[in-house]
């Protein structure tokens, strides 16, 4: 029987388990509403390192170390790492992982990377190619500002549509069907580009991709919003969330009551001055590894649809006047099977 259903969705016969998660965040995230869910909160965003890039690599390295330790297994048990970040040539991931003796797939999906890793990891497990894999994603406010925006000390104003890159890394261990929660379905997104050019409004650039993936997921699986306790996108922020909601309504699905966004959950927009919300690979990664995973363990939700979103532009493409391609991948996480 084919596991591929509909146009873009996979249904796992023996859904892989998310065995353990670990999250490390920066000081600002540690003052946010989700602080109590994170394993480690840094006091110094440089974490004793010499550069922002090195600090982000340390986030990667330590979150992987932490998740292995929490799962009570050894690095030798892990057959693959799927990881990625926002920096050129995946600097943070590769340098953070280089001392592990573990086969590595480097992924770039911008801020959707966490989903990419979890999806490929789940497929690897379901295919019988491994017993344990790690999916990890990271971002760092300072290294991202340096690469994508401005030097930190430049005196500029951030538009209200701009998001705040999360400093943090989240890692999950996925293994064979065992205990809940399980990854039961995945819907891989297509690139959707409705012509948004403003890199200071990434929520608007990604919202059409998020809407497309969510609607496709419903069509492919025959499920409806009522089947979910929570539908949570990666980092659309306030602007993108509104837009996605409106786009999804055009397909006659109403998800308003169960719809949230990691970028909105992670910061308090009133007191933390984060404008549109959090963003970056680390945003959905730490929100999942901290808040979502732990609350699923507590049975707050039985079934969630987790949709990290990515804006696939580079500083060069923006300068050349290109529009911003968006992508979104959906992962279904459930506590009960059948």
């Amino acid at each position: 029987m084919s596991k591929h259903i509909g146009n873009q969705t996979i249904k796992f016969d023996l859904p892989p388990s998310i065995i353990e998660t670990a999250s490390i965040v920066g000081p600002k995230e540690g003052k946010g509403p989700l602080a109590r869910y994170f394993d480690t909160i840094l006091h110094d965003p440089l974490w004793g390192e010499k550069s922002w890039e090195k600090a982000e690599s340390k986030l990667v390295n330590k979150s992987i170390e932490k998740v292995i330790e929490k799962a009570n297994i050894t690095p030798e048990d892990i057959q693959y790492i799927f990881a990625g970040d926002l920096l050129n040539q995946l600097t943070a991931s590769t340098f953070g992982i280089r001392n592990y003796d573990i086969p590595f797939f480097g992924l770039f999906g911008a801020c959707s990377t966490m989903a990419e890793g979890m999806m490929l990891g789940a497929m690897t497990i379901d295919g019988g190619f491994a017993d344990y894999v790690i999916a990890e994603a990271s971002s760092h406010f300072c290294s991202s500002e340096k690469q994508f925006r401005f030097p930190l000390e430049l005196g500029t104003q951030r538009p209200l549509t701009a998001s705040w890159t999360v400093t943090g890394s989240g890692a999950v261990i996925i293994g064979k069907n065992n205990n809940p929660p399980y990854i039961t379905y995945i819907t891989t997104g297509k690139i959707v580009d409705l012509g948004i050019k403003d890199p200071m409004n990434m929520g608007a650039a990604m919202a059409p991709a998020a809407a497309d993936t969510i609607v496709t997921h419903f069509k492919d699986t025959g499920r409806t919003p009522n089947d979910y306790d929570l539908i949570i996108t990666g980092d659309l922020g306030y602007v993108g969330k509104e837009l996605a909601l409106e786009l999804i309504k055009k397909y006659n699905y109403d998800i308003e009551n169960i719809f949230s966004d990691c970028g909105i959950e992670i910061f308090d927009a009133q007191t933390q001055d984060t404008h549109a919300g959090g963003s970056g690979c680390g945003c959905s990664a730490v929100t999942f590894c901290g808040y979502l995973y732990k609350e699923m363990k507590n049975n707050k939700w039985k079934r969630i649809l987790f949709i990290p979103t990515g804006a696939l532009m580079s500083p060069g493409s923006t300068q050349q006047g290109e529009t911003i391609p968006g992508i979104a991948h959906a992962v279904v996480i459930e506590n009960q099977l059948g």
Binding site: L160, T161, G195
Partner: peptide, 12 residues
């Protein structure tokens, strides 16, 4: 969509 974005995005 551009119109929608214009309407939804907060202005300075």
């Amino acid at each position: 969509y551009q119109q929608m974005v214009k309407k939804t995005s907060p202005n300075s």
